[in-house]
Amino acid sequence: MIKFFISIGICLSVTIVYAVDIPLEFEDTAQQQRYQQLLDELRCLVCQNQTLADSHADLAQDLRSQVFSMVSEGQTNQAIVDYLVTRYGNFVLYRPPLNAYTALLWFGPFILLIFAFIVVYRLAKSKKVGDVKLNQEDHLAASKLLNQSDSNNQG
């Protein structure tokens, strides 16, 4: 039983773990924030569903140290991102840029939404019940049915 509680405790104590190599020394917290922010937006190419910050892959470690040295040198975020994009393509970006290749990715959902609106509109329109012309016989049949249900309710 104690073991059970210990294991539950261990499970609950697990939080988000960043892959940490060596303790990094930043000049100021702004640099550290920049570093962390960059790593969170860059994809590891080996484990593609992980960011550079999360991945334990060897290459991710190398790229982290590369990003660290570029941040320490005071290079801009744009320069660092460009450095990686020229080598690995836009694939390293978790936020793909808008260009001819990614236009469908960006606008596809809106096109589908417009399409869905058109379908719904047309369906709704075709189901619309217009004025129905009733003749004498229909009126009689209707009032007969109504009266019938009235008397049923009363009885």
Binding site: L45, V46, L59, D62, Q66, R87, Y88, G89
Partner: peptide
């Protein structure tokens, strides 16, 4: 040795 040239070639596997 340090894999720097590998990064320059966009090596990942």
């Amino acid at each position: 040795e340090d894999g720097k040239a590998g990064i320059d070639l966009g090596l990942y596997g």
